[in-house]
Every structure is written in structure tokens, then in C-alpha cells.
Design a protein around this nucleic acid. Sequence first.
DNA 1: AATACCTACAACCGCCTTTCG
DNA 2: TCGAAAGGCGGTTGTAGGTAT
Length: 393
Amino acid sequence: MGRSPCCEQDADVKKGPWTPEEDKLLVEYIGKNGHGSWRRLPKLAGLNRCGKSCRLRWTNYLRPDIKRGDFTDDEERLIIHLHATLGNKWSSIATKLKGRTDNEIKNYWNTHLRKKLLSQGIDPVTHRPRTDLLAGLPGLLAAANLGGPAAAAAGQLPLDINAIKLQADAAKFQILQGLVRVLATATAAPAPTAAPPGIDLMTILGATLTANSGGLLGQQQLQLSGVDLSRLGQYDGNYNLPPLTNSCAQTQPMSSMSPDSLLNRISSGISGDMLSSPELCHGGDGCLSSPELGQGGPSRSHMTTAPVAAPPPMVAADDQQCNTPSGGGISCEETPASSTFDGLASLNLDDIDINDMEGCWMTDMLLAEQLPSWLSTNNASEMHISKNNTSEM
DNA sequence: AATACCTACAACCGCCTTTCG
DNA sequence: TCGAAAGGCGGTTGTAGGTAT
């Protein structure tokens, strides 16, 4: 069946914004008679409008039970969660938010929440970490490293190397946020009875980095970027990531770390020896397995993220305090006056919903994980990627 | 002060599904 | 059962107001 026109094609019906007079007519008519047939309503109400336009005006704006005003934090969280579950089913989402219309929710999503998720490194469509950031990272890193003395000598300095470096840092940080998100998702999901096909984090890294230049990233660029992709080239999907620990008794919550300190930890490249240091590996067995992942165990197989049908959404958390667990004692780091992230307001570490994480293992990950080395632009040569072997760390 | 650009949101468009004679 | 009408939905556009230059 073809599309049926909502109004006569030749009808001289009015379009565009509604006037207060038109609103009054519509409200009065529906108040007295109900809307009945929307197609007949305009003529009966004395409106020179398409019935469809009348319906939209009523349902989206004039209906008396419509809730006006800003969306609350709870509503935001609910929308994000429902979107992760339902996708762009705005009408279905609207049924869960009393007084909100599908159009209003859709607009709010497109203008606020979508950008919010993007700023957190979350793909607003899949609610998973953005891989486009990974794809663009090598270029940013390469550009950032082009600002070295050699480039200066060659007269090849980029226009604004600081800006590019900032972008590279920002991209790395967002990637990190996303990866934390992936891990949190895997943690929150029920332990699968059989290991489901998942997304291997290193596969994402390797695939996106190498795919960035049509599947072949030149060695020169790789070296410039400081990312030792020769190791990625060796990667066959079986690299083990270091074990995660669920012990956080003395670990500083990520939320209490300043972006700079976090980034410093990343970019400084933490050596594998630190993994066994009492400071970081304080949880005994907790340092040797990742029970939350449900697939760690003694073999410590590489991390994957279970494909969850409805991953918990990344929601903006309330301001996190330096609330190390009792017995913690690590004080919050002060954000340096001159921060790498100055001006990058969108990259707010507090936006990571720490409450959504089970345990503090991800903090340990940030401190002891090899991942920082992968993302490091400075110490790629110090990476200790071992295949099926983490004992050397 | 003028202009360009950006943002938010109301409204429209076109397709699909449901209802009804 | 069929086909037209009506309703519903999601994507897109137009525009007003705000902000930056």
C-alpha cells in the first residue's frame, strides 16, 4: 500500500509555527469534544491545518499532562539506560518517562545526551567504547610527535602542535574511559555458562590502529607515533592482558585522580615490575585473577567483553569524592595548576560512573595494566607484551 | 554594532502499522 | 480478505535565540 497523504495535496493548509490563537482553538475544541478523527478535526475546530499537524501539536506541546522544564539526572540516566536497551524507540522510551513526549526525548538525546556520551568516549549508538577514536589515534600521535626537534629542523612543524598533542591526550583518555566501560560491562554481565564470542580489546586496538591507514600503517608513522605497532603486527588475538585485581583496599579510586595524574600514569609507561610491588599488588590472590570477568582464573586468558544485549549505560556520576575505602589512606591528588587537560572541560573524569563498577579492580588496571603502555607515546619501547605469559611481570 | 556561527527544539516528511468498513 | 483511511513513529529540517568574532 502506498503512502497516504495526510492532507489534500492541493489544500492550502498552513504550515510552520503555531500561533497562540491556533493553539487556543485546538485546546478548546479537544477540551469539549476530544480529538476524535484527527483528519476531520481541523475543519471542525476552525483550523486551517493538517490533521496530522494538529495531532503533533497536541501530543507534543498542548497536552495538559506534559511535563515542562529540564530533564532531571534521574531522567537522563533512565533515558540512557532505555536507549541502550531499546535503541531509537522513542515512543517506547517516552512511556517510561511520565509527562515527556517522544519528540522531546528524541530532541534531548540528539542535542545533549548524544554529545555527552561522545565526550565520554562512548558510542551513543552501540553504547560501547568508540572505536573511531582508536582509528584516529595514530594520526594524532604521529602529528603530535612531529613536533620534535627533527621536525623543527626540517621546517615541518605543525601549525599548532600543542593543540594536536592535546587532542592526542584527549583521545587516549577517552579510549581509556571506553575501555574501562567495556570492562565494567563485562563485569556487570552475568557470568556466561560458556564463553560467548566477544570483542577482544587488543583486537580492537590492533585492528583499528592498523586499519587506520588502509590496513597498512607505515613503520615510519608508527615510530613517529611512538606506538610500537610491530608488536601489534605480532598480535594474533592471544596476547594476555595483565591480571586484574578486585582488591582496592589501598588503591586510589580513579574518580579521585586528576586527569593529569591519570594521564601521567598512562604516558609514563608503568613497568611490569610495578605489578608485583606491594603498593599495587596488595590483594594477594586478588592480583592474580580477575574473577569478575568470569573467565580469568589461573590461565588468565585474554580479556574479552561479552556481547551484552543491554549494556548498562554510561551515566554521568555525581561528583565523586576522594572516598577511598576504609583503611585506604591515599589522599586525593591535586590537579596541577597547569593541566594537560586545561580547556578540555568535556573530559571530566567524574563523568565516569564509578558506582557502576563492581570493586576497584579497574583502578588497579589503570595503575598496573599494560594497556597504558600501548597507549604511551613516550615509552613504547618499554612495553612488556608477553604472549600467554604474564609471569614475568 | 554587525555578522557569522552554533544550539536547541518545534514542526514537518515520509514510511510503516493498525484499524475498520 | 482486501484495500483505504487513520494513526504512529523515527528521521530530518527550519528557525529563533544565543554566542563568538
